[in-house]
Design a protein around this nucleic acid. Sequence first.
DNA 1: TGTTATGATTCGTA
DNA 2: TACGAATCATAACA
Length: 373
Amino acid sequence: MDDQTRMLAGLAGLGGLSQGDVGDPDSVRKQLGQPQQDIGDILQQIMAITDESLDEAQARKHALNCHRMKPALFSVLCEIKEKTVLSIRGIQDEDPPDPQIMRLDNMLLAEGVSGPEKGGGSAAAAAAAAAAGGSPGADGGIEHSDYRAKLAQIRQIYHSELEKYEQACSEFTNHVMNLLREQSRTRPISPKEIERMVAIIHRKFSSIQMQLKQSTCEAVMILRSRFLDARRKRRNFNKQATEVLNEYFYSHLSNPYPSEEAKEELAKKCAITVSQVSNWFGNKRIRYKKNIGKFQEEANLYAVKTAVDAASVSAQASQANSPATPNSGTVCPCQPPLTPTPPSISITLPPHTNQLRSMLLHTHCSSYTLAEV
DNA sequence: TGTTATGATTCGTA
DNA sequence: TACGAATCATAACA
């Protein structure tokens, strides 16, 4: 007798036993000896069970559990089921880690939604602020804290939902396991099958978790884009910052290319970023070049201002160490009385300064700047 | 509401 | 990679 026939015989034998047959070995042997019994009859008997009262069903269940052939048949059925089910599902059980889940996990970790709370959100906010090139001003601070607050909200919702899902998963798993353990007394359910069922439940719940992670990622992306958009809004630099930048620009008109150190210094003074300083000088150079006439007044203004500053420093110095010496020479002498003698300064200019040099030829103070160059 | 000013971005180049 | 040039987007102002 092959496995299939034995299983059918087992089902037929147990299902076909009447209450009167239970406990009667001869009757069981008689039933088992008829493997070709019509399956229709078996189904009929199974369906008939539903018509029985609860007491009758309980009694039948008890009778089946107590039947002396039950352990043997049960183990045979378990064995057959194990073989067939494992051969079908064995390969599917070994799931590789889902790359999408890994991506989502990494992103949530990077954004500070999952993982340790301290630093995560603020680091992401700082990164977003840095990406936007935002200034650390008062508004920036407000937006920064706003971002963190919103991120914390998302984080809270995410963890709360995750906890709910995990709890539900655990409860449902326990429930199913108890049910299967209970059922395993009357039908062939091996521990491995229970494990598989648990794995199936976990897979279902992890797919729900993935949806949650996806939604959270989307929320973070939306928040981040809004935050970045807000930072992209152009804000004029404050007056003091513009003055500092202009002072540097006009006092270095012959070579308005601040070094990295100078940019950092200016950035610090103006409370802006180094890239903002670079942007400012880039814009200033091109706009000055395009319309020198328009900027002339401004140039004169800053030249006077710088000259006055230099003169006061010089006066202080001459008071300390007489005799007096001329000023440092970084001032454009658009105002001749302040700087009677152009200083001789040797400056190494970058190649592109040729353009600026030609540009300066058209300014009224070009003689000085060219002499300086 | 139109214009100008200005900070930021993009793209090509040396 | 820094820079020039063009352009965009928006603040500031008349």
